[in-house]
C-alpha cells in the first residue's frame, strides 16, 4: 500500500505525488509509480503529463486533476497521517502497523513479516525464511 509523503526539500515531489493520485484515479497508480521511479530526475509538469500519455491515460482528465489540485487533499492527508505517526523521512514502512525505518534490507522485511505470520498462526512460506537467515 502506498502513502504519499512528499518531502518539502524535494521540489517536484508534491506535484509528482498529486499526479500519481491522478493516475490512481484512472486505475494505473502502480504503472505510473514505476514510470516516476524510472525517471526521478524528470518530474516537471510536462514530464508528468507525458508519462500519463505514455500509459494511455485520459490525458485531459489527468491534466484537469493536476490543474485543479483535485488530489492535493488526499496527498496532504497522507502527509499529515505520517506526521502524526512521527514519520519524518522516506521511505518509512509499516508491516501490520509495525514501523520499519528507512530503506530496509530484505532481512528486515522477512523478519517482520515472518513474525506477523507466526503471530497469526500461519505457516511461513518455504524459502521465505532462508533468505532472512531465520
Amino acid at each position: 500500500m502506498w502513502k504519499n509523503l512528499p518531502l518539502s526539500m524535494h521540489q517536484y515531489a508534491a506535484g509528482a505525488a498529486i499526479a500519481s493520485m491522478a493516475a490512481h484515479d484512472q486505475g494505473k497508480f502502480w504503472e505510473y509509480h514505476d514510470k516516476l521511479f524510472a525517471n526521478q530526475g524528470k518530474l516537471k509538469k510536462e514530464d508528468l503529463v507525458q508519462y500519463a500519455r505514455d500509459l494511455k491515460l485520459d490525458v485531459k482528465r489527468f491534466q484537469d486533476a493536476i490543474d485543479t489540485g483535485k488530489f492535493k487533499p488526499a496527498v496532504d492527508a497522507d502527509a499529515s497521517e505520517a506526521d502524526k505517526l512521527g514519520v519524518t523521512g522516506t521511505p518509512a514502512f509499516f508491516v501490520n502497523g509495525h514501523f520499519l525505518s528507512g530503506a530496509q534490507p530484505f532481512d528486515g522485511f522477512a523478519k517482520a513479516i515472518n513474525a506477523e505470520l507466526t503471530k497469526q498462526g500461519l505457516p511461513i512460506p518455504a524459502g521465505a525464511a532462508t533468505a532472512g537467515g531465520l
Binding site: M1, W2, K3, N4, L5, P6, L7, H10, Q11, Y12, A13, A16, A17, S20, H33, L36, F37, Q40, L43, D78, A82, V87, T90, P91, A92, F93, F94, V95, N96, F109, I113, E116, L117, Q120, L122
Partner: peptide, 12 residues
C-alpha cells in the same frame, strides 16, 4: 491479506 505493508514515500 494477513500482511499489510504500508510505505510512506515520495517520488524524488
Amino acid at each position: 491479506a494477513p500482511i499489510v505493508i504500508a510505505e510512506f514515500s515520495d517520488f524524488q
